[in-house]
Design a protein around this nucleic acid. Structure first.
Lengths: 206, 206
DNA sequence: CACTAAAACGGAGGCGCCTCCGTTTATTAC
DNA sequence: GTAATAAACGGAGGCGCCTCCGTTTTAGTG
């Protein structure tokens, strides 16, 4: 099951063809650097800067990502994936209610970095509807996993489900974009958790 | 009521301040040229080409229209306005049913030039919701005027109103973007008119 | 008319986008 | 190992974006 020369499907590649070693290296590097640069300069950051910082030529960037949108999409998907993967890790390391709370705080942090980009991102998400449904599906799945575990273990009340919580988070997301947004949102998550813990079966089975 | 030196509101200016003569001239020129260039090269046409063709410097273009969107918006509004103004003119020159038909054909022509730009325009219209409501309101008002006149004169049947016709036109608009779109749409308008004329009170009062 | 202040002009310059293609590098075959 | 070839690299070059500021034009005033 390791890397066989004739393996039809291999572990790393997204879909079809195996990339040459240097190509794969550069591609990974570009995505990583792009995430950093987009975060610090916004979604309109210079692609030439990204290439420069990644130590590759601009031509290489364009070969891997023919348009800015391609690059943004890959970065975005990667970040959503990391956010969702964190759900599993948190669930292992903490009691179920704490895992849920920490994940929601992380969700807030994640959204915070996207706030300024709202318009551009919204355009991307409406233009590319697959991206939207893929990622929002993935996020609510992660949340459901956490909520259901917490309900099953009795660390939060039983009369709510994942979509209730998702609604609450959506409220946070669509709050106006003031400077205090982040702090306010963190407090709202705490508040929400207090509400969720209230009336829970006190005995966690874990 | 003519041009008084101290007139508080004057005829030409859109809103507040009277432009200097050369400024007004250049602005008008730019809008006119921009309409032509957008039509022939698409909404992403070079702004430098527009300035060049209008015989002004690029700086002048940017002073009048700080972003591409500003320019596009003004051009778009102007075209919608022309389309709507045509309703009144047609109504004077032709019997009411003919006026309606010709206006709808012109509507089709107008949409035809916008087809390729669909994505960019849709973004603009969703980003700038005032633009959307202003213009769509204006268009349906023009249509209503024509339909009601034709119904009143008995040149089309009495059991339809403007919103029915608008619905029909919307169907044309959202038809897939094939090469035959224009011809097909013209035929659809004819078809629609035949249906509208069927059962009309034969005696037009005009 | 001349004079002046304010408004408008316009294009050079700096930067980013993106393509194209000569050069380099990884891989495969021997 | 070497050779061959396909893949990938990278940056120069051409074009467009947009700002900035020295120059020109207009509208007012006497």
């Amino acid at each position: 099951m390791a890397a066989e020369p004739f393996a039809i499907v291999e572990e790393k590649a997204e879909e079809a063809k195996p990339l040459r070693a240097d190509a794969q290296r550069n591609r990974d590097r570009l995505v990583e650097v792009a995430a950093a640069v987009f975060a610090e300069r916004g979604i309109d950051a210079s692609l030439e800067e990204i290439a420069r910082r990644a130590g590759v030529g601009i031509g290489t960037l364009y070969r891997h990502f023919p348009t800015r949108e391609h690059l943004v999409e890959v970065v975005y998907r990667r970040e959503v994936e990391a956010l969702c993967a964190a759900a599993g890790e948190l669930a292992q390391k903490h009691p179920s209610d704490v895992a849920l709370e920490q994940w929601m705080q992380r969700f807030v942090d994640y959204i915070a970095t996207k706030r300024g980009l709202a318009t551009s991102l919204r355009i991307l998400l409406t233009t590319n509807s697959t991206l939207f449904s893929d990622t929002s599906g993935r996020v609510s799945q992660a949340l459901r996993q956490l909520v259901e575990a917490a309900v099953a273990e009795g660390t939060i009340r039983g009369d709510v489900d994942a979509s209730d919580v998702l609604h609450a988070l959506f409220g946070i997301y669509s709050a106006p974009d003031t400077p205090e947004w982040r702090d306010r949102s963190r407090r709202l998550v705490s508040l929400l958790m207090d509400g969720l813990r209230f009336g829970a079966a006190k005995s966690a089975r874990a």
